[in-house]
Design a protein around this nucleic acid. Structure first.
Lengths: 198, 198
DNA sequence: GTACTAACTGACTGATCAGTCAGTTTGGGA
DNA sequence: TCCCAAACTGACTGATCAGTCAGTTAGTAC
């Protein structure tokens, strides 16, 4: 058994619980029982509950950044437009494959803590910077190869697309509509929004 | 002093607190002290804390539905496209003018409660139906007067636009980006997404 | 075996909070 | 004036929970 198994088990269970039930509604006793350890053990590895949350967010940040850099190492794109649409599709895919990460990013506590805890804020900014930069790079590339409308502000458009994708992910997890059925339409909508009409 | 003043004061303070701090992080004692009444008084007017929350959501529903019906009674539009863009702009305006309503709609507890409480679910569905139907009506109108792309599924596009607007509102309240600076771009992006290119 | 440390634990504490209850106050009708 | 019901209250309770602490166990170096 590896040395850090208990610590990483705590982290994994805490991710599931914080994402699924929120910070306040998750008790340290629940995390402990889910990880099959004594309650006090968590406080040996993590100073406070808030500290545990920040560590969870750090692991989510690492996960998201790694997944995206892996994707763009492997994929080749024929144009900036195709790269943008690929990034949107991959973002939506990640949100399904790693629901917990994106649920955590929708929790209010994450942003409330970020307002007072610089470490938490840094991880959050790293995540958003990673996401926005990918869209912006694709848009810039597309303006160079003429696949993207030249009139767009690439920065602002990148933010709008991020907001749109986030909004779709949110709509789906709200359980009011089946937003999964929209994935095809979203890509088409994005295309119409940014493509260069020759 | 009107008879219902204390009950409506409780409702108003609870709206502010639930929206700003969430359900679990708001104590009944806080609501009471903000409303300047004894703690037990709340339980005279509302059976439980959950009951108070549902009443708050009901008042938010009433507010949103009223505001939109008022807006569309007064405004005239030259085309379906202009009606859609007007609705998007008004939605964004409402989110600024009535931050609390939309903050409450972003709280996870709202959706978690809706999953087990039919009354809560009904109010939520009423709100979303109101918002989606407005976009869908405008899109249908625009397909009739040729201002909107005929190829679009109006239902799916209405959902995507709702997700986009919600995403922008969320991005702004996250305090990571100043999304207010995007409002002009959003309207332009929507136009490019749905307009009929002659 | 001994000694030392990191990992781990059960039992506890003080604070917080939703909800209760037995009673008091208030306002209006006869 | 008396009466009654609705509105309101202070004092309380039982449960929950983050965090502490004094101690035990497991691993490792000599």
């Amino acid at each position: 058994m590896p040395k850090r198994s208990k610590k990483s088990t705590i982290l994994s269970m805490a991710t599931t619980l914080f994402a699924g039930k929120g910070f306040t509604n998750t008790s340290m006793a629940e995390v402990a029982s889910m990880a099959d350890i004594a309650g006090a053990t968590i406080f040996y590895h993590f100073k406070t509950k808030e500290d545990l949350f920040v560590s969870v967010l750090e692991s989510v940040k690492t996960g998201i950044v790694n997944e995206f850099s892996l994707y763009f190492q492997e994929e080749q794109f024929t144009s900036g437009l195709e790269m943008l649409l690929g990034a949107v599709a991959y973002h939506l895919h990640l949100a399904t494959a790693n629901r917990e990460w994106f649920l955590l990013l929708r929790r209010h506590y994450t942003y409330e803590l970020a307002a007072v805890n610089p470490v938490c804020r840094k991880y959050l900014e790293d995540i958003y910077t990673c996401l926005v930069d990918i869209f912006e790079k694709a848009l810039n590339l597309g303006q160079q190869d003429d696949s993207i409308n030249q009139d767009l502000s690439t920065r602002k458009t990148a933010l709008i697309i991020l907001a749109m994708v986030d909004g779709i992910i949110q709509l789906e997890s709200n359980n009011l509509y089946n937003a999964g059925a929209l994935y095809g339409e979203i890509i088409a909508s994005c295309r119409r929004m940014v493509e260069n009409k020759q």
